[in-house]
């Protein structure tokens, strides 16, 4: 079976995202996607406004380079249902970006 560990391309893109977030890229961290309706709205915005634009994807998704706690629950990529552990990758089709386990976004779901 093909090894799906993080690829050099993923690593490069992950570094780029890390730098963007560390340099203060403002993202829509709040409000979190509290309801399914909010999830649908955010996903719809990702589809219509972000497309292949990385910065817009990070912004609308509400990415942070640290874990956010909401409703008394930590929301790291590490426990998110869209996270591929071995590839360190977010598989939600509208995001589709390499991440770090301690990062977070407002579409987190478990």
């Amino acid at each position: 079976m093909e090894d799906k560990a993080s690829s050099p391309e993923d690593d490069a893109l992950r570094d780029k995202i890390r730098t963007l977030l560390a340099n203060g890229l403002e993202t829509e961290v709040w409000p979190r996607a509290e309801t399914s309706e909010m999830v649908n709205q955010i996903v719809n915005r990702l589809q219509t406004e972000a497309g292949d634009d990385l910065k817009k994807t990070l912004k609308i998704g509400g990415f942070t380079d640290h874990t956010i706690t909401a409703d008394d629950m930590e929301q790291p990529c590490e426990t998110c249902m869209y996270y591929l552990v071995h590839r360190k990758f977010c598989e939600l089709p509208e995001l589709d970006v390499p991440v770090e386990p301690e990062w977070s976004c407002r579409l987190w779901r478990i």
Partner: peptide, 21 residues
């Protein structure tokens, strides 16, 4: 229980579980 189980199981998932087998 669901949140606990999910976090633990996700962390323990083998690579093949993430592939189309």
């Amino acid at each position: 229980g669901y949140v606990k189980l999910t976090a633990a199981a996700k962390g323990a998932a083998p690579a093949w579980a993430e592939e189309d087998i």
